[in-house]
Design a protein around this nucleic acid. Structure first.
Lengths: 259, 259
DNA sequence: CGTATGACCAATTATGAAATCTGGTCAAAA
DNA sequence: TTTTGACCAGATTTCATAATTGGTCATACG
């Protein structure tokens, strides 16, 4: 039944298996919701024994958490990759735009942000406080960095911007999908492709963020590159501590896990 | 919908009883949540027979809906009253500020906006589509009005602003209460009064909205007063159709129903 | 030797039938 | 004419039993 049985001295072999387990779990999670996914299902799906799952995670909930962690890490990795190619991505409005799309393209993350009861089961409001802690910290430092570089309006302090940005971002994620065209009520039912609508919402979010929070000071390309590098470091650090550093290094953009 | 009551030819008698029923229901709703409130409870609380409740509302759910409708109407009435005293309240940032507080001070409305499962029971995601319809319509017209008066930035179209405003507003309502002081991590646990924190969040929302959506064009007091009058009419119309017109006329600001 | 496994067990969760409760009605009371 | 509460069907809760499942670990395996 097992391919790689006991033989392995190679640790990457185990990593690979862990990834496979996460893949299977993610798929099951998306299709049935946390409540209905059993460890047995996962094991069968990954062609391994149930006990083997517990060689990687000490608990079912931790396995699930790992799936979500990975999704977050992938989204951030995607973002950082974009930031390396296009330094201006570190500016709040582009950041919001890209992160919004990264989230919305991943049902797992969308479910996480809107606290989808069906998807998350009892994991729903059981955030790891340590993660929230770190998230806040990174967020604060990010906006602090922006402020130091004079990229933020001076009307609001960095902490305030951090709070407002977060609220606005989540508001857009939760906002109903019906951003209708300006062309009056007639176009209501006209089904524009869902992706196009997503893009429009991302764009609107971006412009909102830009207008509300960013200074319009022109920026030298060099300084921007420098700032972007700092921001990349900042978020890399965030993801590092979650055990998915490799995703960032390899800039793994693949398979957003969307259906 | 409601017929008159008691011995009387006087219809206000029935109105009064209806209000009493709503009061009792609201109280029970807040204390036990929709799932646990029975029509019998309501009747007993209001010192009337169960059948009498059905003289006013044909269904338990409609009774509950009426409670929420009234809360909305009260909040809007409060807003309109403020607008009459202080016309600048019709500007998005002040509007957001006051409406935010009006909502946050009413557990019923907060629960409605965040779709509190416990409070709403199965009413949770069972919005009256007709109301959403009207709400959207009024919202759009509001921002259109603002645009016509040149109060909005020109970067975004009125429809876009309407969408973004809604998303931002709901984001702030949902955002966790922990807007910590700029004074570093130390003040984390320092319990500032909840109301003060609410006020700060309202203020931050206001400034965000102002920066993101409003033009900084100076406005003559007269024009502002004119605009405010239009806005009052607009929202009065919204509330009228819900059967709580009297609240607006009497500018009933009393008892936000907060605990 | 160390890794992988699945039978095993306690504890959670599903099931379903009986008992209870409750939304809504309406004949009678006021 | 208005109000009421006994009444009933359908929904909900209960509670005991059955089935499932998270997690362990002695054993098999390479």
């Amino acid at each position: 039944m097992s391919l790689t049985a006991g033989r392995s001295r190679d640790p990457s072999r185990g990593q690979e298996r862990a990834a496979r387990i996460l893949d299977v779990t993610e798929d099951l999670l998306l299709r049935h919701g946390a409540r209905r996914v059993t460890v047995e299902d996962v094991a069968v799906g990954a062609n391994i024994g149930k006990g083997t799952v517990y060689l990687h995670w000490e608990t079912r909930e931790k396995l699930f958490a790992a799936v979500f962690d990975r999704a977050v890490a992938q989204a951030i990795a995607e973002l950082l990759a974009a930031m390396r190619v296009q330094p201006s991505t570190c500016l709040p409005h582009q950041f919001a735009h890209d992160y919004f799309l990264a989230v919305m393209h991943r049902p797992l993350l969308r479910g996480l942000l809107v606290a989808d009861q069906e998807l998350l089961g009892r994991l729903a409001r059981q955030h790891d406080p340590a993660w929230d802690e770190r998230h806040h910290l990174v967020s604060d430092r990010y906006f602090w960095l922006l402020a130091e570089h004079g990229m933020l309006r001076t009307e609001l302090g960095p902490d305030e911007v951090a709070y407002a940005f977060q609220a606005t971002f989540e508001g857009f994620v939760r906002a109903e999908g019906e951003l209708v065209d300006g062309g009056g009520a007639a176009a209501r039912a006209a089904a524009q492709p869902a992706v196009a609508n997503l893009e429009r919402r991302a764009d609107l979010l971006a412009r909102t963020v830009e207008l509300a929070f960013e200074s319009n000071r022109p920026v030298a390309a060099d300084e921007l590159r420098l700032l972007a590098a700092d921001v990349v470091d900042l978020f890399t650090d965030l993801v590092d501590r979650r055990g998915f550093a490799d995703l960032v290094d390899r800039a793994e953009l693949g398979t957003p896990a969307a259906s």
